[in-house]
Amino acid sequence: MLEIDNLHAKVAEDDTEILRGLSLKVGPGEVHAIMGPNGSGKSTLSYILAGKEDYDVTDGSITYKGEDLLEMEPDERAAAGVFLAFQYPIEIPGVGTMTFLKTAMNAQRRARGEPELTTPDFMRQVRELAGALNITPDMLKRPLNVGFSGGEKKRNEILQMALLAPSLCVMDETDSGLDIDALRIVADGVNRMRSPERSIIVITHYQRLLEYIVPDHVHVMSRGRIVKSGGRELALELEENGYAEYVEAA
């Protein structure tokens, strides 16, 4: 599904290197968790996967479904099945949530040569999925994320993920800001999406999320690279001991 090899990246405007030789392989159907101290480059990695232009990749490669991901525009990546749930979803005043969702779904369908969704079909899908995520019709009537609470924004990300049905889901700290009930709702939503054809990368600081979304692999990221990989027990160990050992190692 995804193969990142020796990735080096820096901020486009200056020379600070943020990713310093990061490698990661994610197979189809796998769930990977990435943990690591603040500032280690987790969000940067997720942005580079989604195609944000603020970063320059100076070395290494990213292959997605056999193709060079770095050659693709952000919207092409999305149409090809890459989805990023943002750590800080932004508000877009003036763009209605429903209008945006339909625009995005149909844009992806067009890009893949599929017929566009009719409004009734679209409405039906949204209602079903929104209900399961406890997103009210009133929220859907508002402009995208405008006036949403932190937790509501995160749930809205998962709604978009469920609607767009990507093959590679990257979730950047989707759990932070969620109350206990919302955490369970979101985790259930993600678990329903687990499938042999879909891979998931969850970036998190908390082992609690991983009790709900059980990962196949856990990685520790420090100073721009993966410094340790293991099974889910690694998350427990980190919770116990912190990152000190890995920060030194990096």
Partner: peptide
């Protein structure tokens, strides 16, 4: 970027 990342 947000909108493009959704495929628009």
């Amino acid at each position: 970027f947000f909108m493009r990342s959704r495929g628009v």
